[in-house]
């Protein structure tokens, strides 16, 4: 957990709590426009445009799912072909050994299975989950982030991070409270 511009100071960042989604989105957009780059927002439900506001746009999942799907499809097809044509040729009703239309359903199911596993495991892995401990959990009221409150954290590793400035900056958006987040 190294810092980009600064060493770890014992402070993860400063967090502000908001009571509605619009306030959080406005604060996040302003923070980005102000030049902050290391931040994250937390909300009880997905908010359209919030990820972009904290400077995140590409999920990287499409490539994972496509790759897994193609691998699954080819793998499933190969499995049927290898088993019934190469390893143990089976003559069923005089059909050609490589009666490939019969391999399609299994190839399809394998493609879906691997793509779905790729979507779920890829989402968890790229999100860094499971992660039982995270500094924001130290915030007393953070359990409200899964109910009806909205949080914006500006991280200490941000090169622009100055504790007093950040506190003042967050105070401008009429938050419920602004608190420091220890590591």
């Amino acid at each position: 957990m190294g810092g980009i511009g600064k060493p770890i100071t014992g402070l993860y960042g400063v967090i502000a709590e908001f009571s509605d989604a619009q306030a959080l989105l406005d604060a996040a957009n302003s923070a980005r426009e102000e030049g902050y780059t290391e931040m994250d927002a937390f909300s009880p439900f997905p908010i359209h445009g919030l990820a972009e506001a904290v400077g995140f746009a590409k999920t990287g999942l499409s490539a994972v799912v496509l790759t897994m799907g193609i691998l699954g499809g080819i793998g499933g097809f190969f499995m049927c072909w290898y088993a019934n044509v190469i390893s143990y040729p089976l003559n069923i009703g005089g059909k050609p050994y490589n009666s490939w239309p019969a391999w399609i359903p299994i190839a399809f199911e394998c493609a879906i299975l691997l793509a779905a596993l790729g979507a779920v495991l890829g989402m968890l892995a790229l999100n860094g989950l499971p992660m039982p401990y995270h500094p924001v959990f130290n915030v007393r009221r953070f359990d409200q982030a899964s109910r009806d409150k909205f949080f914006l954290v500006l991280q200490a590793r941000d090169p622009k991070f100055q504790l007093d400035e950040v506190r003042d900056f967050l105070d401008k958006f009429n938050p419920r409270e602004v608190v420091d987040v220890p590591w």
Binding site: A41, T59, A115, P130
Partner: peptide
């Protein structure tokens, strides 16, 4: 799994959900 409702996580989550 330590879900914390991060905006970045939500975006990827919704993407994964839509793909599923």
């Amino acid at each position: 799994l330590g879900w914390r409702g991060s905006a970045k996580h939500w975006l990827r989550y919704e993407h994964a959900y839509l793909l599923l």
